[in-house]
Nucleic acid binder design. Sequence first.
DNA 1: GTGGTCTAGACCACA
DNA 2: GTGGTCTAGACCACG
Lengths: 130, 130, 130, 130
Amino acid sequence: MFIELNFKSTIPIYEQLKNEIIIGIAKGEISFGERLPSVRQLAGDIGINMHTVNKAYKQLEEEGFVSIHRQKGVVVNSEGPPTADKQYRLNLKTILKPMIANAFCRDIEQEEFVKIIEQIYVELEGRKNE
Amino acid sequence: MFIELNFKSTIPIYEQLKNEIIIGIAKGEISFGERLPSVRQLAGDIGINMHTVNKAYKQLEEEGFVSIHRQKGVVVNSEGPPTADKQYRLNLKTILKPMIANAFCRDIEQEEFVKIIEQIYVELEGRKNE
Amino acid sequence: MFIELNFKSTIPIYEQLKNEIIIGIAKGEISFGERLPSVRQLAGDIGINMHTVNKAYKQLEEEGFVSIHRQKGVVVNSEGPPTADKQYRLNLKTILKPMIANAFCRDIEQEEFVKIIEQIYVELEGRKNE
Amino acid sequence: MFIELNFKSTIPIYEQLKNEIIIGIAKGEISFGERLPSVRQLAGDIGINMHTVNKAYKQLEEEGFVSIHRQKGVVVNSEGPPTADKQYRLNLKTILKPMIANAFCRDIEQEEFVKIIEQIYVELEGRKNE
DNA sequence: GTGGTCTAGACCACA
DNA sequence: GTGGTCTAGACCACG
């Protein structure tokens, strides 16, 4: 898995890192039960601070993606995060709404937006069967 | 147009305000050429800092949604923001990807996600004909 | 509210701090809606690092005791943390069991243990009516 | 006696092991004078590190629950650990206080808390007469 | 060797 | 002035 970070972005590094890992899990590039690199190793590899990696890992644990063992390190949960509930869907909609409103003002119609979604789903599922 | 702000949210107030206005424009609740409330008035109505409203307005201007005139005040552009270009689409995809990956891990399949998108489009377009 | 920390204890400082604040809330010494000292101020007062205070505050937020606003600071929630559910009670029992087993081996009978519990409840409620 | 360990818990394994043994002693499942399994055997049975078992045993010895003899192995003391003194009671209260404050904030009143304590005492004493 | 904790000090976004 | 983020480097508990 390649991890690309944009240090100029306003999105916090730990957030970007989280996102990359979640994408990796969704794609199946990181298998259930697999160990993620140790906090210090990953930090060294990417060239960021240990604590930044730690923050990303901790939040992934909170959201149910991984389990952190003091000795074994960080392991991808086999069950994964809890299935989406009403609250999650509502939240998702709240975040999507202004994004879509913006896109809509820029002449991106429903068909095109849906096509983008489909593309991303293909990208995620595509590599899952490798 | 109702403006609802969540002061407990981690999303900055000016960002939420921007979003609400963009949604209003997309819905057609705010017509092209229409004047938005003055910085002072809106800040007073919502009970937030003037600087915050100002920041939202300035960014809306930068993105092409409104024009700020010294005398006329803040006016919704008739042409609207520039049509989405490659860069915009790429950016959109970059933001959507981790969101979808996350949803996917929580068992939201493509069909459901698309349905949510469609719902939002309906909500935006629906009131446009009022 | 006095905050006493034991720097020699194996219990992490942020944990002790959390405990002291929770006791303060339970006693009613800290009222709902009241602001806690800023991260830096409390850190300075106690003579510990800012990040340690921050960790305590963040965990109190997660557990529903307080809300953290970027500008207003940290405020005690009026609703407080979620009412105890089955999981919480089960957990409580799991933690208490070895403690009681240990006390029992040291000849602390049920009556005495209950008396200690009652004493603590009195201490908590006592000052609430001041 | 069944020993159940939760490897995902933040509570150290040796601590959990200690707790389980103390509960066993309190229940009377492990009789005074009885030999505990050897370090090597217990470690093998549960599938944990020998050092971990060793640490648990050593601490149990320090606290007066068992005696470790080079030849006889680890034996449960007939007198048991020293009767609770003032210091022990004070310590117990210090640990219980934040737990109770927390439970109190979650609407667990004195009566219910006491009932939980009583339940645990029953569980411990119940099997003692088997 | 792993994560957990703590410190010290810096810069930034927000309002 | 508030919390948020990030860095750097230290010591410790665990197994």
